[in-house]
């Protein structure tokens, strides 16, 4: 087979698939966002941005991502390096740490609901310790901080594993000779981590971060169960426009806003963590 055409043949199936199931519906959504029945217009955008909930849900979404993603990155890196030095029990620990990978956000929200709800385990433990007299309804408007904390914890709990797996696989590909060489030069474990592991891990870090950050902007189900209407986020508002207000034009406009933010952050991450050509292993 001619090597010049081979790459194109190889990418053809994915390209076709994405055109039909991604680009085409995307064009439909974009079309919807810029029309209201009477041709081209910005009305949908004007409508959503002027709504009082828009700035709140935008801030909430960004705030949540800012709180959750760095913690997840640090935690995943810590876990990945811990596992890489582990001898016995590595398989078991790795299995336990990757369990949340298989757990849906629907299930995760129920798990954390069991802890935070009024007759839940947090209340049980706090009253057992004598901190509170009677169960507190944590997930109410009186405790916005707790609501935020519960959502953040549920997200960290659920979605750190995906970064962990990518990083563990990435660390496994770093030739161990580099560490042996560093040992010879007397580099400390910390130096080895910052000078070898982190730079060599750049492609994996890139992947892990892009996936995570984008998913953070799509957060919806966890919030819906734990925060309800107390903690509006962009995706939740999109859902409301589409199904409660039956305003698909506005929903489409929301979609484009989320899309713009996601692309912006993806480009930033790719730029910061770019791998110089020829500098890969």
């Amino acid at each position: 087979m001619n090597a010049r055409y081979l790459p194109y043949i190889l990418i053809l199936p994915v390209t076709l698939f994405l055109c039909v199931f991604f680009l085409y519906p995307f064009v439909l959504v974009a079309q919807q966002a810029f029309t209201t029945g009477s041709g081209f217009t910005f009305d949908n955008f004007r409508e959503i941005t002027s709504h009082w909930k828009f700035p709140i849900s935008l801030t909430n979404t960004l705030l949540l991502a800012a709180a959750v993603v760095p913690v997840q990155l640090a935690l995943a890196l810590l876990m990945a390096t811990m596992v890489s030095r582990m001898g016995k029990g590595r398989d078991l620990v790795l299995y336990i740490w990757t369990i949340p990978l298989g757990i849906s956000d629907l299930a995760a929200e129920l798990i954390w609901l069991a802890i935070f709800e009024q007759s839940g385990f947090l209340n049980t433990m706090m009253s057992g310790l004598g901190v509170i007299d009677k169960p507190v309804n944590f997930l109410s408007y009186e405790h916005p901080g707790v609501v935020f904390l519960a959502i953040a914890l549920a997200e960290i709990w659920r979605a750190t594993a995906i970064m962990l797996v990518i990083l563990v696989a990435g660390i496994g590909l770093i030739p161990k000779e580099y560490y042996e060489a560093a040992d010879v030069f007397g580099a400390s474990k910390w130096k080895q981590f910052t000078r070898i592991t982190l730079p060599m891990l750049r492609p994996s870090l890139q992947t892990a971060l892009v996936l995570r950050v984008i998913l953070a902007f799509e957060i919806f189900a966890v919030v819906a169960a734990l925060g309800g209407t107390l903690f509006p986020v962009l995706m939740g508002e999109t859902y409301t426009y589409q199904f409660d207000l039956l305003n698909s034009g506005a929903a489409a406009a929301m979609v484009l806003v989320i899309l713009a933010i996601s692309i912006g952050f993806t480009l930033i991450i790719l730029r910061i963590l770019r791998v110089p050509k020829g500098a890969s292993i």
């Binding site: 991604f22 995307f26 959504v29 984008i214 799509e218 698909s248 979609v255 989320i258 899309l259 996601s262």
Partner: peptide
């Protein structure tokens, strides 16, 4: 990945 894919379903 940057697309809020659930709404693709509509």
């Amino acid at each position: 990945r940057a697309f809020p894919l659930p709404l693709l379903a509509l």
